[in-house]
């Protein structure tokens, strides 16, 4: 640990990667804050894109390239689109909706601030003298490259991977079954039949 501390100058003279990481982190946090506070529901989904994209850039800076592109593909590409479709199908208002926040906002703020304070204090105290040795040499042998990730995924983690595919299939079937409209005689008894 002392060697690592000697090799790295510490907080006061950060490296370029650290500066970029902090700047992107600030942008990510800002987007996340707007996501949870904005009154316009569709804007929340679009700010979520910025937040998730910022997290993807952080993955890139941590040399986990494969995860970064998976993040872009799945979160920014499909999850946000699903959320937008959900907003559309539940007829969310386009303009500002004043009742987007519920009445327990002060309590939520208190819980969030308490958890942020506790976690940040704990994490800073625990990892004050810990540095990540980023392998910035690049190439196919880097830590988070697609090759390395794929090899570990399909050598060591094949069984969880296959189980996960079954889970995804079950989720797909479940989502279809849940959101399918009932058969015609059954539909008359639901409240939507009175529309």
């Amino acid at each position: 640990m002392n060697l690592a501390a000697a090799a790295h100058p510490g907080f006061l003279s950060p490296t370029g990667v650290e500066i970029v990481f902090v700047l992107v982190g600030l942008a990510t946090l800002g987007s996340a804050l707007v996501t949870v506070t904005t009154k316009q529901l569709v804007h929340a989904a679009l700010w979520l894109v910025a937040a998730l994209g910022g997290v993807a850039v952080e993955y890139l800076l941590l040399t986990a390239e494969f995860i970064a592109w998976v993040q872009v593909l799945i979160y920014v590409g499909s999850v946000v689109v699903l959320l937008l479709f959900g907003l559309m199908l539940t007829k969310a208002p386009i303009g500002p909706s004043p009742d987007a926040d519920s009445g327990n906002r002060p309590l939520a703020l208190a819980v969030a601030l308490a958890s942020a304070g506790t976690l940040v204090t704990l994490v800073v105290d625990a990892f004050r003298t810990t540095w990540i040795d980023l392998d910035t040499s690049g190439g196919a042998s880097a830590e988070g490259s697609t090759r390395v990730t794929g090899e570990s995924l399909f050598r060591a983690w094949v069984l969880p991977f296959e189980a996960l595919s079954v889970l995804l299939l079950a989720a797909l079937v479940g989502a279809i079954v849940l959101s399918r409209r009932g058969s015609a005689p059954e539909q008359d008894r639901t409240p939507e039949g009175k529309r």
Binding site: T15, T28, L62, S115, A116, L119, V120, R128, T130, I132
Partner: peptide, 21 residues
């Protein structure tokens, strides 16, 4: 890179998520 940067960012993101929920 200092390990505290990603850890603190993750903690703050998590807290923002708690507030939103």
């Amino acid at each position: 890179m200092h390990l505290a940067y990603p850890a603190v960012l993750a903690a703050l993101l998590f807290s923002i998520g708690i507030y939103g929920v």
